[in-house]
């Protein structure tokens, strides 16, 4: 919100399961093609695995599972959005990466009350765009993956 033109936020947009999402650009480190994912046994289902991004170990989060969205027909070429939290690197696996959008803060509306709870818990609001809706993702809440129940 402290970005230069005050009332504008830049979002990196991405499509997951047909829905358009926006991530605040200030939180996005990079966008990359995930390669050689190592699955992690006993991990929460949302965690797709670990991968090596230029010598760093990145935890990949399957956004379809995280957001309870069905996979579209045919496994489209997937991409990952790199974000950082508490010194650790994460990769959010999305279907298609979109353009960067500049949207006014005032255009962000609260979540509709009937929004799917899976989405509502990670959404920071909704922007109405021409012909489609953009759901703003709260990165910290997305990363708040609960440990698998069986782990205890």
């Amino acid at each position: 919100m402290n970005e230069a033109p005050e009332n504008i936020i830049e979002y990196v947009t991405a499509t997951v399961g047909g829905q358009l999402f926006g991530l605040p650009i200030s939180r996005v480190q990079d966008v990359f093609v995930p390669d050689r994912l190592t699955r992690v046994p006993l991990a929460p289902p949302e965690i797709a695995g670990l991968l090596n991004l230029r010598g760093r170990i990145v935890t990949a989060i399957d956004m379809r599972r995280r957001l309870d969205l069905d996979a579209p027909a045919g496994d489209a070429s997937r991409m990952a959005v790199g974000v950082e939290s508490k010194g650790e690197s994460y990769g959010l696996l999305i279907d298609v990466i979109g353009e960067v959008m500049k949207l006014p803060v005032s255009g962000c509306e609260d979540n509709p009350i009937n929004l799917d709870p899976g989405l509502a818990r990670v959404s920071a609001g909704v922007h109405r765009l021409d012909g489609k809706l953009l759901v703003v993702l709260d990165v910290d809440r997305v990363l708040d993956v609960a440990p698998a129940a069986e782990a205890a």
Binding site: L42, P44, I47, L50, E88, Y90, V145, A151, A152
Partner: peptide, 9 residues
Amino acid sequence: SGKLRHIAM
């Protein structure tokens, strides 16, 4: 990663 540290294995 912090999200996986609970896995004792």
